[in-house]
Simulated assay, not measured.
Amino acid sequence: MTIATDDAPSTTSKLNEERASGIAAVSQSRGDDLIGRSVTINRPRDELFAYWRDFSNLPSFMDNVEQVDILSNTTSHWVVKAPAGRTVEWDAIITEEKAGELIAWTSAENADVPNSGRIEFRDAGARGTIVTATIAYDPPAGVVGKVIAKLFQREPAIQARRDLRRFKQLMETGEIATAAWTQKQRDEEKA
């Protein structure tokens, strides 16, 4: 078991050459914009990997992901919220997987949003596990689409940070904290 000593985002980490080549593969696969986000979660690596690897769990903490349908052991279909009430869809294909350590993927041809990435799980000793998401994507409509997505809080760089924070909350506490009112609270306020 190797304990990570560098929890910098993968795009800047100097931990080892294997990770650097993995990140290079992400950015060359699908997408021009590359983002990397990390979070340390106080849970065992294998537990976090198992939860993430069941892609049907992802909508439970990924705010913009409406649905992930498992098509096979290596292929899944994603439906994701986009700006202005739209959705975008694509099939994702796992390109590399190491049990308990990483999952890498790329979108199939003709995806609404071409993308690729990897999610890594590294031991952080007594602190738990460092989870790092690295994503490359091509925003629809190029720079204009990226600006619009940012305005509507749907831009992947914003979402990756928030989704990892929600994943941390869910795994450490069993729930995701929110300031949003429930329907019951709204009804009580009106009464």
Rank of each mutant, 00 (worst) to 15 (best):
F61K: 03
D163I: 07
Q169D: 13
P44L: 01
N115E: 02
A124T: 08
A25I: 03
T5W: 13
P59N: 09
A179N: 05
L71P: 01
G142W: 04
F167N: 01
A126H: 06
N57S: 03
S38R: 11
R166L: 02
D112C: 07
A82W: 14
W78F: 05
A20E: 14
G85P: 12
M1C: 03
D6V: 04
D187P: 02
P59C: 09
V26K: 04
L48A: 08
I3L: 06
L71M: 02
T12N: 12
I148H: 06
R165H: 12
T182W: 03
N16L: 08
E18Y: 07
E109A: 15
S60A: 12
R161Y: 13
N57G: 04
V143W: 14
A84F: 15
A8C: 11
W181I: 00
F121N: 04
A108C: 01
I3M: 06
P9H: 10
K81Q: 13
W90I: 02
E18L: 11
S116T: 05
I70R: 04
K14I: 12
T2R: 10
E175W: 08
F55M: 08
L102E: 10
E155M: 10
A25D: 09
R127V: 08
L48K: 03
K98N: 13
D163Y: 05
S29I: 03
S107L: 06
K168S: 14
A104C: 10
H77D: 04
S21A: 12
N115A: 02
L34M: 03
Q169A: 14
N110K: 11
I94A: 09
M62L: 07
P139H: 01
I93Q: 05
I93Y: 04
I148M: 12
V65T: 15
G128H: 05
S107G: 04
A160C: 10
R37P: 05
A82F: 14
R161L: 13
I103R: 03
L170I: 00
I23L: 07
T87M: 11
V147R: 12
L164N: 07
T95A: 05
P139L: 06
A124W: 07
S76Q: 06
E189S: 09
E96K: 13
S107F: 04
T129E: 00
M171Q: 11
V26T: 07
Q28R: 15
Q67E: 15
Y51A: 03
I70C: 00
M1T: 08
A82S: 15
I103H: 06
E188N: 09
Q153W: 15
A191G: 14
Q153F: 14
Q67N: 14
Q169P: 12
